[in-house]
């Protein structure tokens, strides 16, 4: 009997100690390292970068030069156009093949899925080599075109090479998203449309595409943002100042034009962030995980 009384006495009864408040302190303790690392090594440097962009001779107008300076503006436009084209192409490929791989069951299907998603997380530089292998001076496309037409086709070192490389790079991640969305499509919706007389193309237009739309918007936005900032492929293919990241790199390393490099980086960052934020407001969550 005495022991029970002792236990009861030791039970926490002090009204001041809210267990939830104590837990909050512990939780704060757990998240602090992440906050410190992130603030010190990202928030602070980025804030400084934004300030640096306005620190050159032109001051705040350095930011405007991105639009007014012909070389910067055309590079920005080219990067936008390239990324847009890459996004549309990749989405089309991913819808056709992704739907096929989800809907059909045949021998070798899982091997094909593995093949299509294998280059996920290949770095851009390696993609550059892949493009050289396809369209470089000793590339397979050149060999084939010599055999067929007697003319050697080399596309690795211009915008076509970048386009091919970025599509290569984007296919695995977009197809994964599209396949995940296609698996969740409600088959009964398609059956309902068919029972109402819709032909297969109508079912595709009225049921499947609307069903995939959030996935298409989110993976398209990620694809676009990644293409905007992609650097390794352009670096390997030595694409000069054709795309914005290469321009930033040359301004910084060759011309030591720090203010311009900073301003261009900030603008590039803002564009990609805006695209992702916009897509998310349309398609809901899940848009942020680029990479």
């Amino acid at each position: 009997m005495t022991s029970i009384a002792a236990v009861v006495e030791r039970a926490p009864v002090s009204p001041g100690a809210d267990p939830r408040a104590r837990e909050n302190v512990l939780l704060l303790l757990l998240i602090t390292p992440a906050i410190v690392v992130f603030s010190a090594f990202w928030l602070l440097p980025i804030a400084r970068l934004v300030a640096l962009g306005a620190s050159g001779e032109a001051g705040i107008e350095t930011y405007l030069s991105v639009l007014t300076n012909g070389r910067y503006a055309s590079s920005l436009l080219q990067t936008l156009a390239l990324s847009g084209l890459v996004t549309l192409t990749t989405l089309a490929i991913a819808v056709i093949s992704g739907l096929f791989l989800v809907r059909q069951d045949f021998f070798g299907r899982s091997a094909l899925v593995a093949v299509m998603t294998l280059p996920l997380a290949f770095p851009g530089v390696v993609i550059g080599l892949m493009v050289i292998m396809l369209g470089g001076r000793q590339g397979i496309v050149g060999d084939v075109s010599v055999a067929l037409f007697g003319v050697k086709t080399v596309f690795a070192y211009n915008m076509v090479g970048l386009f091919v490389g970025y599509v290569y790079f984007s296919i695995p991640r977009v197809i994964l998203t599209v396949m995940a969305a296609a698996e969740k499509l409600d088959i009964q919706l398609e059956e309902a449309a068919r029972s109402l007389g819709a032909t297969p193309p109508m079912v595709f237009r009225d049921v499947i595409l609307p069903g995939l739309q959030p996935a298409l918007i989110s993976s398209g936005a990620i694809c676009f943002a990644t293409s905007m900032g992609a650097f390794g492929t352009a670096f390997t293919l030595n694409a000069g100042a054709s795309v914005l990241p290469m321009l930033i790199y040359t301004e910084f390393t060759l011309n030591a034009n720090i203010a311009v490099a900073a301003a261009l980086s900030v603008v590039l960052g803002l564009i990609t962030w805006a695209v992702l934020a916009l897509a998310r407001s349309f398609a809901g969550s899940g848009v942020s995980a680029a990479g």
Binding site: D186, Q188, R194, G211
Partner: peptide, 20 residues
Amino acid sequence: LPIEKRNVGMVFQSYALFPN
């Protein structure tokens, strides 16, 4: 004849209403 040519009305367990 596939379903789209049969002219049958069908009601599904999940209703299968088009969300768009």
